[in-house]
Design a protein around this nucleic acid. Sequence first.
RNA 1: GCGCCCGUGGCUCAACUGGAUAGAGUAACGGACUUCGAAUCCGUUGGUUACAGGUUCGAAUCCUGUCGGGCGCACCA
Length: 528
Amino acid sequence: MKQRVLALLNSEIKRDIVLEKPRDRSFGHFATPIAFAMAKELKRSPIDIASELVELFSKDAMFTNVEAVKGYLNLKLSEDFLDEYASWALANQDEFAKGNESSTILLEFVSANPTGPLHIGHARGAVYGDTLLRLGRHLGHQITAEYYVNDAGNQIDLLGTSLMLEGQANILGLDVEYPENYYRGDYLSELAKIAADTYGKEVFLDAKKIKDVTLWAKDEVLKMIVSDLAAINVHFDTFVSEAELYNDWDRVMDILKANGGTEEIDGKQWLKSSLKGDEKDRVIVREDGRPTYLAGDIIYHHQKFERKYDSYINIWGADHHGYISRVKAAISFLGHDENKLDIQLSQMVSLLKDGEPFKMSKRAGTVIGMNDVVEEIGSDALRFMFASKKSDTALEFDINDLKKQDSSNPIFYVNYAHARIQTILEKSELGREEIMAASLKGLSEDADNLLFEAMLLNEVVEDAFNSRQVQKVTDYLKGLASTYHKFYYDHKVIGTQDEAKLLKLFLVVALSIKTGLSLLGIKAKDRM
RNA sequence: GCGCCCGUGGCUCAACUGGAUAGAGUAACGGACUUCGAAUCCGUUGGUUACAGGUUCGAAUCCUGUCGGGCGCACCA
């Protein structure tokens, strides 16, 4: 809808126009403060300019009313236009709220180390990334969802050693002392049991086998992560192994060197990232020749850019924000446009339990697992709640609140609106064809408002994706559900003269809710 | 100490990225079922948008400073 209005306005006004949804519907469907901007340029009163604009557009069939109020230009869409758009949407449900974008995007998210199960903080990044993925694809973007697997380095070695110790302690019954920073937890006990069955119990004492066991354990943990993610409808297209990247290190290093991006000091290779806005230079190859973690990220991003996507999105935990400038510096040294990489941070989730801060530690084994929470409240509630918070602000919630499964949870409120529509459709004696044949013209004012709101999904999706703020979708759905509930309470439908019309209107509302929820990875409920 | 993010009713969050009277949920209180699902709806109370300046037609939003909080400041990942 918005595009068509903008297209019309732009045919007369050659500049960027902001179309707003007025707070008060009596101001119309759309409004624009364009006269203020023009006033500055033309050095004339915005009120005069707005009045002139009224003359320009009031005759168009798209609008039933155009007026100037205090410098704002308020537009009211015509019934013909709204009826036509709604009928089209119902006849082409799969196309509803879609866009015409076509760019290719590589979206990397989660990328948690395969050293243990995902915790509640990872879930936030997963939900955020997957929601962006769904929104972007709906708009037409061709997006690849990728998981970068950190399967090299100390953390992985630590997983192997931790597993060996776990086996010695719990399978062989030996007296073992755990160093402080080793991994603990139920998943390790489980893994040890399976390892004992697969390799035999003696494996835990065989120092030569530790490498094999480590690799095996890493794969098992990754499988666990993938299946936990599947439980909240998050799926990846590609997985990239950090360990395999290092085969390409020499080649990438040569490019960095050739472009003056490195310097050798004290037998170490440094990335001269301070030249590109980083606080200081960074070691990328240690004295003994082993590349650092950053080296892996450099190869990874170089290969990403060689895969030639139009743009790239990374979703990182906020504790990695210090990494942004050094990775971008490396990308720039490698001859790529670092502005094509958009790094979004997913802020910490801090947990409370009975009002007290609840500290998590993967190594101490006191982690709130993502799957534990999913078991308690279900994927839908978890996804809706996480999606409804801006990703770059810290989020705090009480574990006990999450366990509640009542109306205070907004997903129930939205689902209830959808379910109510299904029920009333079943109660009605009218068939689908009779309903579809009805016209949406001549509706009451509040029905017209509901219709318009239901048809705004595309604008919301576009706004949410482009600003990377997925909570706009949940806000919209809560608002639409509220408008619907209110309307439902105020109006009787079955048996009235307008029954077919109103049911058609409800079909549009249901379509919008169902589509909106699907973009959040949630299947709308027909019954509560 | 330096860098990044943030500070909005008691609590959890919005505010179309500079626009009209700062909105929802929750909590508290009071109302609405003989009626398509009351898991709903309506109303009341609650705000100097941390504070102080500045920019302009216009600021929660941008700039400067102060105060407060989170995260980071590895040759760990």
